[in-house]
Design a protein around this nucleic acid. Structure first.
Ligand code: FES
Ligand code: FES
Lengths: 147, 147
DNA sequence: CAGATACCGGACAAAATCATCCGGTAATAA
DNA sequence: TTATTACCGGATGATTTTGTCCGGTATCTG
């Protein structure tokens, strides 16, 4: 579905949101990688993309780390995260790989896939990182397997 | 969404179905690659997978090529093609990459993604290659862009 | 049988993705 | 100021995916 990078990015963003909800606490790379069960160095790369895209805030130095501002908590959607990392191919490309997806020259699955892709876009558009962070905070969702 | 191999596989299977509907005509690799706009050698590999999986029939020698038996036209579903090439990861794996997707320890998006994945499974399960081939035959769907 | 055709199978190569390493830089604190 | 902390950025490497090549084999035709 999504690339590994994107999976890590979403999980990391949600974890950062969950932590910085409790009084703006910053969280370090090591923490993040441990809590979402992802390779540390690779996760750093993904986070840099999110910082550059303005979806996550970072602070250097001691007591530094990553955080979400209250504004980011409210406004950053999953769709923005996915677009920043994976681009829009999955969100608007043809399911069978035609160079463009449109009702003019549609692939044989076009009208079957449209509602699926619309629903996917809707889910990504209407859910903010902060909202999902709250779900994790309440124990209703998990960012890693615990066995 | 799907891998390139899978996209080519689906398009190829549909084209073969469309051609062999007209009196069981066989179609060669070159034809297929041209008509679905795919790399010839790579498409051959994918077709071999489909033949081994029993979803497409092949005949060697002059006047040989690929075809779908009437039975294959009726019974082979898109789901079988996708499973033969990409495996079941996209059809049952967690959207955020957790090692397993279940209501026990669900990811924060689990319940949002379930209906999407269910609908995807439903589309793949209920559409046969032969049915989509008919759609292409009637000019209602295309397997390549024509400009 | 001889020759041509066209799929089969394995090795090989290129590109994208996934992942690591390490020196540089900004921020903090003693 | 100096040392420490922790993110930044680029280079590098491993793995997977994508794509090619070529000899082998089965099949058909004359
Ligand atoms: S043309 Fe294939 S999904 Fe729209
Ligand atoms: S646990 Fe993530 S989609 Fe089910």
């Amino acid at each position: 579905m999504f690339s590994k990078a994107c999976e890590y990015g979403i999980r990391a963003a949600i974890y950062i949101g969950q932590q910085s909800a409790d009084g703006g606490r910053r969280v370090g790379l090591r923490d993040i990688a441990t809590e979402i069960d992802s390779p540390e160095a690779f996760t750093a790369k993904v986070l840099q993309q999110l910082v550059r895209a303005g979806l996550v805030t970072s602070v250097k130095g001691p007591a530094g780390g990553f955080a979400l501002t209250p504004e980011q908590q409210r406004t950053v959607t999953l769709r923005q995260v996915v677009l920043a990392i994976d681009g829009g191919q999955m969100l608007q490309g043809c399911a069978l790989g035609l160079t463009q997806c449109s009702a003019r020259q549609p692939c044989p699955l076009h009208y079957q896939f449209l509602p699926i892709r619309d629903q996917l876009n809707e889910v990504l558009r209407t859910h903010t990182v902060g909202e999902l962070a709250g779900k994790v905070h309440d124990g209703l969702g998990f960012l890693r397997q615990f066995s």
